[in-house]
Amino acid sequence: SSRTRFTDYQLRVLQDFFDTNAYPKDDEIEQLSTVLNLPTRVIVVWFQNARQKARK
């Protein structure tokens, strides 16, 4: 499976959201998916990875 290449804009939006809320609800994931034009699955994985990094 090929890795998703995020744009600077997508990363900024995801990071800004994460800084406020590391555990987005389903409807928030749907909204991010629509706004960023990314599959919900990709967003879910991004947040999982971001939470892992934040824990270190």
Results as ranks from 00 to 15, higher is better:
Glu28Ser: 07
Ala54Gly: 10
Phe18Thr: 03
Pro39Met: 01
Arg55Trp: 05
Leu11Asn: 13
Asn37Trp: 02
Phe17Gly: 06
Asn37Thr: 14
Leu32Cys: 02
Asp8Ser: 04
Gln48Ser: 07
Ala22Gly: 07
Gln15His: 07
Pro24Asn: 00
Ile29Cys: 11
Asn21Glu: 07
Ala50Cys: 13
Arg5Thr: 15
Asn49Tyr: 06
Thr40Pro: 05
Ser33Gln: 08
Asn21Leu: 02
Arg51Ile: 06
Arg41Lys: 13
Ser1Thr: 12
Lys56Met: 10
Gln31Glu: 11
Asn37Arg: 09
Val45Trp: 12
Arg41Val: 12
Ile43His: 00
Gln52Pro: 11
Asp26Cys: 05
Ile43Pro: 00
Pro39Gln: 09
Asn49Met: 07
Thr4Asn: 13
Phe47His: 02
Arg51Asp: 04
Asn37His: 05
Ser2Gly: 12
Phe17Val: 05
Arg41Ser: 14
Arg41Leu: 10
Tyr9Ser: 14
Thr20His: 07
Thr34Pro: 04
Arg55Gln: 09
Glu30Phe: 08
Arg55Asp: 11
Thr34Gly: 08
Ile43Phe: 03
Thr20Glu: 06
Ile43Ala: 05
Asn49Lys: 08
Thr34Ser: 10
Glu28Gln: 13
Lys53Phe: 13
Phe6Gly: 04
Val42Cys: 05
Thr34Trp: 06
Val44Thr: 09
Asp27Ile: 08
Leu14Ile: 07
Pro39Cys: 10
Ile43Asp: 00
Lys56Thr: 13
Leu38Tyr: 03
Thr20Leu: 06
Val13Asp: 14
Thr7Asn: 05
Pro39Gly: 12
Ala54Pro: 10
Gln15Glu: 08
Glu28Cys: 07
Asn21Phe: 03
Ile43Glu: 01
Val45Gln: 06
Asn21Tyr: 02
Thr4Met: 15
Asp27Val: 03
Asp8Gln: 14
Pro24Asp: 01
Ile43Gly: 00
Asp19Ser: 08
Tyr23Ala: 09
Gln31Trp: 07
Ala50Asp: 02
Asn49Cys: 05
Arg51His: 03
Glu28Arg: 05
Phe47Cys: 03
Leu32Pro: 01
Leu36Pro: 00
Leu36Ser: 10
Tyr9Gln: 15
Gln48Tyr: 05
Asp8Glu: 08
Ala22Tyr: 04
Pro39Arg: 09
Glu30Ser: 10
Gln10Ala: 03
Lys53Asn: 11
Ile29Phe: 08
Ser1Tyr: 06
Asp8Trp: 02
Arg51Met: 06
Ile43Cys: 07
Pro24Tyr: 01
Leu14Cys: 07
Gln15Gly: 09
Leu14Trp: 00
Asn49Gln: 04
Phe47Asp: 03
Asn37Phe: 04
Phe18Gly: 01
Thr34Cys: 09
Asn21Gln: 02
Ala54Tyr: 05
Gln10Arg: 02
Pro39Glu: 11
Arg41Gln: 12
Lys56Arg: 07
Leu38His: 04
Ser2Ile: 10
Ala22Thr: 08
Val45Cys: 10
Tyr9Glu: 14
Ser33Leu: 00
